[in-house]
Design a protein around this nucleic acid. Structure first.
Lengths: 237, 237
DNA sequence: GCAACACTGCGGTGCGGAGCGAAGTGTTGA
DNA sequence: TCAACACTTCGCTCCGCACCGCAGTGTTGC
């Protein structure tokens, strides 16, 4: 029989402690055993067992540095499947209430290594509308132009084999946004330029005043950003 | 915390008997309790418990007719997520061997309610190349023309809210193909016109001689179909 | 060398659930 | 009415595994 081994992945996802750790890792950063144990509310030795299971299932990879072990998602495709799964997760009333409560937080967030949520969708659609991005066989292709330099992105000179831009389906918006190396560059640059800031915990991001200006000047996102109801930027730390 | 409840879905997918039943249901048809029990190699009373769990997770719906209970996947989005999951399932050597062995069978197959596999990808790309299909914001839009009538498909007169054509990612090909109501119509028509036949078991389909002719005449798929290495059609039953 | 620290291994407990046999319910057809 | 049938419910056994306490290994910093 050629039945795909869903069960190996399913087994890995079947425990609430493991899914809490995975949600933590969805942010895209690496975390130590202890941090993940704390996030899941379990002891370190239990977390060790869970993480080995996730590793065996191919969802997570580990990297030893000194006396610490850093864990991260095995790749963007894992994050994408988890986002898809979140889309069909049962919507019991409690979960629905929680999702509503967390609405503001989810407005701007990172999905593994790129931006997600309404801001990402708005940016993608602005890039398409202004002709900086073109659709090609279900994927996106970047059109050379000065806008990319203003976003802090370097387009590859030669067209490489691997897709430079990959569409990723957003589970709250159910619309496409930018992933792939280009999406990664945009997020990295936005953090480096202090357009976005990552709070100490969680996947949520906050937009700063310079960020608001930049997104308005470069992409004309003024009106869309107001609807997004961003968390107000904090005072200088 | 607003952590999505992966674990409910994961729990449902974490057992090999349940995933065997789900693979059976991926074909898109309804099956009785007894049939699914047989496919999974378990007794009826055990299958009852499994199917209730799948129902609670929202993956499967049941319909009682007389003394029989028919089970089917809860919707196309469930089938799509399962296809995605199959794409990141661990590729141990045994599974790889099985997949290779089942290569011919997977050439033409149904994915819930539409065609999948290389034939579906080839059809989609032919429709795009000939301008019968257009890409729009990550989705497909059908362009009116005589080709649809030849395929036995009726396009909706008014543009409805729900997407008439939905792209679906193929896990063996990793390329987009047609899903949504249009994909369903194409599969239904191909079966009705005896272009494709469904064998007694499994998701695989066979292409008949009239089917080969039709796909060549309507879409110019002659060369692509040869590469697809279809199972030769059987003699009249 | 020694203490502090991060992580892993081992043994034990307790719970959930996969499986089946036996019995019960509801439907179909003779 | 009765037998055959599809499915469900109940009770039971057995196995896997989530969890922790405790002990051990390897690393860091004094």
């Amino acid at each position: 029989m050629a039945t795909p081994r869903f069960d190996i992945i399913g087994q890995a996802l079947s425990d609430a402690s493991r899914t809490r750790m995975l949600c933590e890792l969805m942010e895209g950063r690496s975390f130590t055993n202890k941090e993940l144990a704390g996030a899941a509310g379990i002891t370190a030795q239990t977390a060790t067992a869970h993480l080995r299971l996730l590793q065996d299932a191919g969802l997570v990879v580990a990297e030893k540095r000194g006396r610490c072990v850093f864990h991260r998602l095995a790749g963007p495709e894992v994050a994408q499947v988890l986002e898809q799964l979140a889309g069909i997760a049962p919507t019991d009333s409690l979960y629905r209430a929680q999702r509503h409560k967390a609405k503001d937080l989810a407005q701007v967030r990172s999905c593994y290594d790129h931006l997600a949520g309404p801001l990402a969708v708005a940016m993608t659609e602005a890039l398409l509308a202004r002709g900086h991005l073109r659709q090609d066989n279900g994927g996106f292709v970047a059109v050379a132009g000065p806008v990319w330099a203003r976003l802090g992105v370097a387009l590859p000179t030669a067209t490489s084999r691997k897709p430079f831009v990959r569409p990723c389906l957003d589970w709250t918006e159910r619309r496409l946004h930018l992933a792939g190396p280009l999406g990664t560059q945009i997020l990295t640059q936005a953090l480096a330029a202090d357009w976005l800031r990552r709070p100490s915990r969680g996947r949520g991001l906050v937009v700063t005043q310079p960020g608001l200006r930049a997104f308005h000047d470069i992409l004309g996102l003024g009106a869309r950003l107001e609807r997004i109801n961003v968390t107000p930027p904090r005072e200088d730390a």
